[in-house]
Computed example of a mutant assay.
Amino acid sequence: MKTTFILKSTAIVFITMTSTASAENYNANHFFAERHSMVRGPYVDFAKRVAEETNGEVNFTVFSAGSLLPPAASLQGVRDGVAQVTYHAGTYTPSELPIANLVGDMAFYNTDPLVMAFASTEFGLTNPEQLAEWKANGVVYGGGYSTSEYFMQCNTSIQTIEDIKGKRLRMAGGAWSRFAEYVQAVPLSIPSSEMYTGLDAGSLDCAVAAADALDSFSLKDVVTHMNTLAIGNYYAGFEWGYNAAFWQSLSPENRRVLFNQMAYYLGQHRVEFDKDVEAAVQSAKEGGMIVVEADDTLKNALAAFVAADEAVLIANAKERGVTDPAAIIASFKALVDKWDVLLAKVDTKDVEALAALARSEIYDKIDEATYGLD
């Protein structure tokens, strides 16, 4: 009830504001802080470049850190026009986005975040079932993303299967929570903004997240040990999802500008994200954090979980109304394998090379005159 009321109130304010504001001023929403790599490039710099390339016809005002929409409301907010473009973490809306969550839960199939960012983007822009799901939710999908690998960042040392039993782990839901249960840990699905408090107060033993959180969420102040077992990476939902009416109001030329800029920042954010991880880990180590490796019992447990979990993915998707989840999984795996090969041929730290590949293999194949208009 509270969330609905707040969202409607925000929408009323937004409608009132836009009645007197220029039609070329639009809202861009992200719930991470502005300094985060998924905001400062793909939203703050993106907005500046879009304004320049459209000669001022498309101007985004960027709202970060949940200042416009809380995380769970971003999908509804972009559908209703509170924001014209938003980031959305798919696990907040499993019932509305069962296909997006199905592929998002395949985070253990390939833990290379660059591969998953590009594969999920191509899937979101081209798969017919996924496109129908976006449309049913009033969203025009623009492009995806991926965090860096998730690691256990803890206030205790975890190296073995025995160490992890009974530990309270902040998880991103879905497959991550199932993995925690598989190794007899306790999964807690809490927002990233609450990781610090949980570790500091002792209600969490570990935050399982990308290691840039050591800096961006100040976890280095409360984390004593980090285990480098790669527990997937997060890419569910979308980095850019557009309000349908807004998208349809744009000229084809301006839609192409958005395509080109999303192609650039798809690669740029991955390069910057990994730089942030490297810097955050180094700073935390200098502050006394100990980096530990998982032993074979923990590595083998993760491998056994991954092998068994695909059947759970399929069953969950069917319960949410997905007709043929096995076919969708096969389609997504094919794209992941494709991008694993393509990205091995380029310098993965060269943003321009990554952007060129994103354009030639994905965005240049999308027709700006028709995409998102039906």
Results as ranks from 00 to 15, higher is better:
N27Q: 13
T54A: 07
P42D: 13
L199N: 02
A280N: 11
F332H: 03
Y182P: 02
A263H: 05
L298Q: 09
T16S: 14
D350H: 08
G173I: 01
A326R: 08
I328A: 07
A327H: 02
M195D: 08
G232D: 09
A207K: 05
V341C: 05
A89D: 10
A11P: 00
S283W: 08
N101T: 06
D212H: 14
A284Y: 05
N27F: 12
D80A: 12
T91K: 12
E253H: 10
T156I: 09
Y235I: 00
Q248E: 12
T93R: 13
S157C: 10
D324L: 02
Q153R: 03
A172I: 01
L266H: 09
G321Y: 05
L354A: 11
T348E: 11
G321W: 06
T224E: 04
D364Q: 14
I12W: 12
P325D: 11
M262L: 13
D337M: 03
L69K: 03
N25H: 13
F332A: 00
M226G: 03
A117K: 05
C206Y: 02
D200E: 12
V140P: 00
R168C: 09
T111I: 14
E293A: 15
T323N: 10
H225Q: 07
N127D: 15
I158L: 08
A311W: 06
L125A: 12
K338N: 05
Q268M: 13
G237W: 01
W134A: 06
Y234I: 04
A308W: 08
G142E: 02
A353S: 13
P252Q: 13
V291M: 13
G232N: 04
S157M: 11
S19L: 10
M17E: 14
G198N: 07
A294Q: 07
R79F: 08
T147R: 10
G41R: 11
A284Q: 06
V341R: 12
C154W: 02
A245C: 08
L250P: 04
Y363R: 03
W134V: 02
G104D: 04
N227L: 07
A317R: 00
D296E: 15
A355P: 01
